[in-house]
Design a protein around this nucleic acid. Structure first.
Lengths: 344, 344
DNA sequence: CTGAAAGCGCTTACAG
DNA sequence: CTGAAAGCGCTTACAG
């Protein structure tokens, strides 16, 4: 068997309480004692047994990471970065992440993540939109939640969201500065707040720049009540081309749709950026690899994941803390797809 | 607080031992007692606390799932299905999967998954090729391993692999039956055994069908010491076209390279399948969505993940069991990309 | 087939 | 600042 806290205590000549205190960093320990004990711990490479620790401290040491199956498969490049960020931060808390996908529409309690049925996590991070039934259920369990890229207005839950409206205003300004004014928008279902905010950001920015007639013109935006896929991007491009004269640019609600959009434009004989400018949102890692490279709004995904983990652990340690919403800043990344040629 | 085993014992009028036995299904319990206790458990929706259980039984209840960062990012569609399979099976053992990526080349112990440093898993599943240093280290820890899509000859480790050679013979036969004989091969680094086996399968099948002169002709295959990406597929297509007269078909080592290959062929004005046939391997979920749809070798990924989990749990319960290698059968899926038009 | 009891390896008031 | 001791909620020989 491995060493236990008793062994370490005996070797160091102190009590197990003292060893425990040294490890956890809690309480007051004289510097000399701490050093003495720490030396023994290091020497024997001692690590406390998780399950014993958990049992005694009434913590599981696990955090649930929940995402809808549809989001994960549709925007894997986006959400997997958030998972990575959360995992990186989890290491600082000596916590493990338990990943679970859930159906978009929860029908039965059977669809809940199984770590919820046991008492196997101390809290959960939920990424993207998810059934209100699930959130309700977790709340009733009294379990802390941190939301990423989602919000439930009216509920007291920590959340981390990116500044979608601001991102859209950056794009619109970038285009208008190039004297591009006939700007279409391809979006998706408002079920996801980010999608809605991006569309609203488009409208607000257009109106602010005196292009309100365009942003309110039905022909200028193609929205579908579906998940944002490359297909939606293709359909949107086709549709806008059909209904709008003199279309100069298409703002896509995210990079995935932008890629579908560019492919469709090219297969219809329209060159990007020569004939039409295209932009995305999220700046997923393949955005720089498309041809032409895709202009996008950079979203710090890793940081969002880390932030969620921090918020959650903070909430677990201080249950009475007031919940907050963090708005993560974004920035424009100009690439080939949105640079108008021969501007001079 | 929640109910404990003591509460259940008191309510049912038995001892905690009996309740424990009912839950675990171990030992002999009279049917009537079992029913009585089970009823109370169901009624109060009792679930034993993991950490207590783990502490008492000296099990962590966790399994580590290790994959190299490069594999995961290159073949995400393939390996994520294996993860899903393992997760599905994990539920049957009431076990959680702890996911960790590792660098392809481990340099320092710091690169090891952190669940290895603690004693936080009962065993690990390793997917794809991984540094021998890591495997050595785990073996020294005395921790059971199950390998998926990888093998270390000479070591006693359970492994699950697909029948790569047989898959390749199916492809070659399928092509030759259509009177296609000028068949090239695009592959990757032999660091990964599957890649090597597929190439060898190609050679063996070609020779068996009397086309040995082709399979041994360097001009007929493009192999690079790199991860198999779409780029490799493009390069391979270009290269084979350049060096081989009358090229009729290209067998790609997996679907990813096949997609790069098809794109390149089309951009060079060659039609698939009219001018050249193309095949892949793995049958990832987007293989059916390419244009033309891609013929491939179907690999039961979910089943492989489940199988690995079973092998591993079996090994954990019976440490003296002899390790085995399971060869998973594969089958050809004929789609448009390999059907020669106007055969009649 | 079932119960009493020890023990798993920690944490945490409590006392000093 | 440190130690003795109780207790976390289970499992598992052991006895009967």
């Amino acid at each position: 068997m491995s060493f236990t806290i008793k062994d370490i205590a005996k070797i160091s000549g102190v009590s197990t309480s003292t060893v425990s205190l040294v490890i956890s960093g809690k309480g007051y320990i004289s510097e000399s004692t701490r050093e003495k004990v720490q030396k023994v711990i290091d020497e024997y490479n001692y690590r406390p047994l998780r399950s014993a620790r958990q049992l005694a401290a009434n913590r599981t040491g696990n955090i649930g990471f929940i995402i809808s199956d549809v989001h994960l498969s549709r925007s894997e490049a986006f959400y997997s970065r958030i998972l990575l960020g959360a995992e990186l931060e989890a290491r600082n808390y000596d916590t493990y992440l338990l990943l679970s996908t859930v159906p978009v529409h929860i029908n039965a309690p059977d669809d809940f993540p199984r770590f919820l049925k046991g008492r196997d996590v101390d809290g959960v991070i939920i990424v993207g939109s998810v059934s209100p039934i699930l959130i309700d259920h977790i709340l009733k369990l009294g379990m802390p939640i941190a939301l990423v890229d989602y919000r439930v207005p009216g509920l007291e839950i920590d959340s981390i969201i990116m500044d979608n409206r601001y991102g859209l205003s950056l794009i619109v300004e970038h285009l208008v500065h190039q004297n591009v004014t006939h700007i279409g928008f391809v979006g998706g279902s408002f079920y996801h707040p980010s999608i809605k905010e991006r569309f609203e950001g488009y409208q607000t920015a257009m109106e602010r720049l005196g292009l309100g007639d365009i942003s309110r013109n039905k022909n200028y935006h193609y929205l579908v009540e579906e998940e944002t896929t490359t297909d939606i991007g293709s359909l949107g491009a086709e549709q806008l081309l059909k209904t709008v004269n003199n279309l100069q640019a298409i703002i896509c609600v995210n990079d995935t749709t932008a890629i579908g959009c560019m492919n469709k434009l090219q297969s219809l004989g329209k060159k990007v950026p020569d004939d039409i400018l295209v932009t995305g949102f999220d700046d997923v890692n393949y955005a720089a690899l498309t041809n032409p490279s895709l202009s996008s709004i950079h979203v710090p995904k890793i940081e969002m994941g880390m932030g969620a983990m921090k918020l959650l652990m903070d909430k677990i340690e201080n249950p009475d803390k007031i919940s907050q919403t963090q708005l993560i800043p974004v920035k424009l990344v100009e690439r080939m797809s949105s640079i108008r040629p021969n501007r001079e």
